[in-house]
Computed example of a mutant assay.
Amino acid sequence: MSNDVAYPVFRTSDPALALRTARRLMEFGRCEHSKVSAYTELSSVAEVRRMAKAIPEPEGRFCGAFELEEVEEIPFEDLPALVAGVPASGLPTEAAAFEGRLPVEWEVWNLPIGHIEDVFTAAIGPNVGSIHWESLQWPDAPEAGFNGESKHAEVTLVFNAHKLELDKPTDDHTVFVHVRSAVHNGLQSREPYAHWLAAQLGLTVIGPAQRP
């Protein structure tokens, strides 16, 4: 079993520029089966309702915070709506339903490339979130001594954060390139491949590796 590791290659306060840059990198490895997913954390009811209007994706689900003891031994169909997860059209209308459920997460998975990226970027606002492209195909880099990569060829655009975990909000956005993790003598032996991939698009690795 193998894992991937991600390197930041671009950072800007302009979300549209961040998306354009991430797309350039994604297109470098895009293939027939490439897919895109998106995720955000919404810290207020107002932001939940705003996002629901901006992104009326039937595939997307809004899921509120909950404690494990709330759901133990409870049939799925009996769970509160925000615990089970609902599409935009299923969000509760009463504010009381959100008590104890913030932040609310919204996520959509495995969509065709180009299906969600523009509207999501326009709607993200101050919220942390990400767009993730996977099932890409990185090319061979014979001059750098690396074969191509498919299983771990991915690109992530993180909004309002510097880390994939989204744990420390910022006011700028970061693009990551993913490669296979291969550690030898405590070092990532495929890090030069990440540098090579970034350089093909005129980008530079700007920080240490992060694990998804």
Rank of each mutant, 00 (worst) to 15 (best):
M1W: 09
S2V: 10
S2L: 11
N3V: 15
D4N: 07
V5A: 11
P8I: 00
S13G: 05
A16H: 14
A16K: 03
L17I: 14
A18S: 00
R20M: 00
A22V: 03
R24L: 02
R24T: 04
F28S: 09
R30Y: 01
H33I: 03
S34F: 13
V36H: 02
A38G: 15
L42F: 14
S43P: 09
A46C: 05
E47I: 12
A52H: 07
K53I: 15
K53Y: 10
A54N: 10
I55D: 00
P58Y: 04
E59I: 04
E59M: 04
G60S: 14
C63D: 13
F66D: 08
F66Y: 13
F66I: 02
E67F: 00
E69N: 03
E69S: 01
V71G: 01
V71T: 06
E72A: 10
E73V: 14
I74R: 08
P75T: 08
P75D: 15
F76N: 08
E77C: 06
D78M: 03
P80S: 06
L82P: 04
L82T: 12
V83E: 00
V86K: 11
V86I: 09
E94T: 09
A96L: 11
A97M: 12
G100H: 04
P103S: 00
P103R: 01
E105W: 12
W106L: 10
E107I: 07
V108H: 05
W109M: 04
P112A: 09
H115S: 09
E117C: 08
E117I: 13
E117L: 10
V119Q: 14
F120Y: 08
T121C: 02
T121M: 09
A122K: 07
I124D: 01
I131D: 08
H132F: 10
H132I: 02
S135P: 02
Q137R: 05
Q137W: 07
W138E: 04
P139N: 06
A141N: 06
P142A: 01
G145D: 06
F146I: 12
N147Y: 08
S150K: 13
H152V: 02
L157M: 14
K163C: 00
E165M: 11
L166P: 00
T170D: 03
H173I: 15
H173Q: 05
H178K: 03
H178W: 15
R180T: 04
S181G: 01
H184R: 14
H184T: 13
N185A: 06
N185C: 05
G186V: 01
G186H: 13
Q188P: 08
S189L: 15
R190P: 10
P192V: 02
P192C: 05
A194T: 03
H195M: 13
L197M: 01
L197T: 12
A198Q: 08
L201E: 02
T204P: 13
V205K: 14
Q210K: 12
R211C: 12
P212R: 09
